[in-house]
């Protein structure tokens, strides 16, 4: 069997023409993609496909000397706009006449881990540079990231060749089935933009809408009293905080975030007290796998764009710190 596997590996290696990247080159490409997303002005229409559902939305991104603005608007189905102004994120839901405000969004884009901790990325993914393809009229370099174990999904990125902007991406499971796909169909890079284009189109009518404001306390080095002991390989804690769930009056919860550099898994710890309605088990919401368990009167929920086994192990490994 070992011999068979060795032969299979050799065959697989010779069949591919893609060039395997070194750690430095792989990181370089990922950082290029991340910084292009922040520094490029663009307006485009993209499709998001998950399962049978395909949705089309518009995305505008603008940056100038004063900051960064972004606007996501759905073009089909329920109307929704997500507006980011620097660190403030506002979600406009006209059907509910509701505005959600997250006060300190975007504290951490990629890389979620500092470079020295990211050094493991080629330890857990095989990163390959494949051919160049056209997407939305732009030449795009394909990067393939194959996971080396069962704890993460595979990714394929199409990065526009001049700036590195991500123009298409897929996420695949261990059987190479596409779980989700994001792709621009229409895109203008370096588009001439002004702030009117990144304002909510509901701003004028939203005066009497309900506003829900969430906040969090992410003090550096904060200790929430919870720890994930022995998480799956490559996953490290990138932050922990206490935060309000939904508006100021809601009870506080603990939020830990772990990442292997590409995938993020959140762990939420909430006090459920005597309420017996708390459920436990596994579920999915889109491509996000969720696993919940109870520990005494606490409910622990782990979720992320990672295989079920990963979120389950992280949920099970979450325990109070021993004093």
């Amino acid at each position: 069997m070992r011999l068979l596997m060795a032969v299979a590996i050799l065959l697989a290696a010779s069949a591919t023409v893609a060039q395997e990247l070194s750690q430095a080159d792989a990181l370089g490409w990922l950082q290029r993609i991340a910084s292009a997303a922040r520094q490029t002005n663009y307006v485009g229409t993209f499709v998001y496909q998950h399962g049978d559902a395909v949705e089309s939305s518009q995305l505008v991104h603008m940056t100038d000397g004063h900051g960064e603005w972004e606007k996501l608007s759905t073009l089909e189905g329920r109307r929704c706009e997500v507006i980011r102004m620097n660190e403030e994120l506002r979600t406009y839901l006209p059907d509910l006449k509701l505005i959600r405000i997250e006060a300190r969004f975007g504290r951490r884009g990629f890389p979620a881990l500092p470079p020295e901790q990211l050094s493991g990325i080629t330890e857990f993914y095989e990163v390959r540079k494949a051919e160049i393809e056209r997407v939305a009229g732009y030449d795009a370099q394909i990067l393939q990231l194959e996971p080396k174990d069962a704890y993460r999904y595979g990714h394929k990125f199409w990065a526009e060749t001049s700036k590195g902007l991500l123009v298409k991406a897929t996420m695949t499971n261990e059987r190479h089935q596409v779980l989700e796909q994001f792709a621009f169909t229409l895109l203008e890079i370096n588009a001439p933009l002004n702030r009117d284009l990144v304002k909510s189109s509901f701003a004028a009518v939203a005066n009497d809408w309900k506003t829900v404001r969430s906040w969090s306390d992410e003090t550096p080095g904060a200790d929430t009293g919870w720890v994930v002991k022995n998480p799956p390989p490559g996953f490290r804690k990138i932050t922990e905080m206490r935060r309000s769930k939904d508006g100021d009056s809601a009870p506080m919860l603990t939020h830990l975030v772990l990442s292997d550099g590409l995938a993020a898994v959140s762990v939420f710890i909430e006090s459920v007290g005597a309420r017996r309605s708390a459920t436990a088990g596994a579920t999915q919401l889109g491509v996000i796998n969720i696993f919940t368990r109870k520990l005494g009167d606490q409910r622990i929920t782990a979720m992320g764009e990672a295989p079920p086994i990963t979120v389950m192990q992280i949920a099970n490994a979450t325990v109070p710190k021993t004093k």
Binding site: L30, R78, C80
Partner: peptide, 14 residues
Amino acid sequence: TAMPGVASYIRTVG
């Protein structure tokens, strides 16, 4: 890296 900027919010909108 999976989707630029706030595009990932499309996951819950959908």
